[in-house]
Design a protein around this nucleic acid. Structure first.
Lengths: 197, 197
DNA sequence: TATATAATTAGATATACATTAAATTAGATA
DNA sequence: TATCTAATTTAATGTATATCTAATTATATA
């Protein structure tokens, strides 16, 4: 459910300690110990908050020896903020859930996909992004269960940043994940933003 | 403290019931009873959540007879979302806290204030907005305590929507409020977004 | 004034979650 | 292997808060 994801995003940021962690990371990456010192909290508390931020993909992690360095994941911080506003405003209301004009669709696909079929770049504009993702998703088989590895390979055909796009697939309800296994959601779920209740 | 405000904004949206209230209000205004029915919760619960949303100015209210109609306050929903991203990303880092070029400042003031001194419109762009507000704030006396009424009158010299601007003054730390009494914050506080810790 | 409707406040309860100390795990190095 | 450092997990505790019922307040109307 879309609403729940947005709630979780806000929950992740609805805590002063977690915000301060993100603030410290705006300077660049930092490891757990240093964060604990700077924030005057224990290391387990840092782990706890890092887990929450990680769950929402608001941070990334890099392990070097036995030290873990955290960094902001700006892309998803921004994505979630936008998604939240879109949900609340129901951007365009009916318009949004109306089938997108086929000409527009074709134009977007022409613009963002190269002749060899690869995605030049992830569209920044919301609607265009959805059109691009849908175009890719349509190549997947409904009902079939895809292990994560296979999904990664599938996405890599289109774009190198498979991790980001994979998460977007989940975020926008194109796919459903359980225990590393991915499956297409029914098409009705793709129609975005009419899930008030 | 800036950080606390952002936390409170996210707390307000970090609850499924409150998000659903906002979602229902995206269609237009609605009274408490109807909300309670549609959400299958008691009226006191609606009041409870409405209070939280009101505290963060995410909704407005209008009383008609003994019925209270709630509506989204899109302006502040958006403002807070932006402020949150600004804080986390420290938009421009040093740049942001550097004194703004005096020429730019003069140009913004020339553009957004009419000859009679009134504010034509609230600038949508973040930095310009701050410049405009600062220009107004400078006419207030440091140390002096202003009752709300007086502040309203002061702002009305510039713009009719005194409620919005008054809240922006607080939001951006230009002023401090306690028991309906407003006072200028020290100038150092106006320098925006370097309050990591 | 009495009655009706909508909203709020007060009080009670249950759940969520932030934090810590203690124990454990992961990785590196002597 | 023993030791060191960083991170995580576990268990316990306290605080915050979402929800309800019952009581109260606000406004309108017969």
């Amino acid at each position: 459910m879309q609403l729940e994801k947005i709630v979780n995003y806000h929950k992740a940021l609805a805590d002063p300690t977690r915000l301060r962690i993100l603030l410290l990371l705006s300077e660049g990456e930092m490891n757990g110990q240093t964060l604990a010192e700077k924030l005057n909290i224990s290391q387990p508390t840092v782990t706890h908050h890092a887990a929450k931020l990680r769950e929402e993909a608001l941070i990334t992690e890099r392990r070097e020896k036995n030290t873990v360095y955290f960094a902001q994941n700006r892309y998803f911080i921004q994505q979630h903020a936008e998604a939240s506003l879109h949900l609340i405003f129901k951007e365009g209301g009916k318009e949004m859930s109306e089938p997108v004009n086929e000409n527009v669709k074709a134009a977007v696909i022409r613009n963002f996909f190269a002749k060899d079929g690869r995605l030049r770049q992830i569209p920044a504009q919301y609607k265009k992004k959805l059109i691009a993702f849908e175009h890719m998703i349509e190549q997947l088989e409904p009902g079939r269960k895809y292990p994560e590895k296979e999904i990664n390979e599938f996405i890599k055909q289109y774009h190198d940043d498979f991790a980001t796009i994979r998460r977007e697939f989940i975020m926008h309800q194109f796919m459903y994940r359980e225990d590393e296994i991915y499956e297409l959601n029914p098409r009705e779920l793709w129609t975005h933003w009419e899930n008030v209740k």
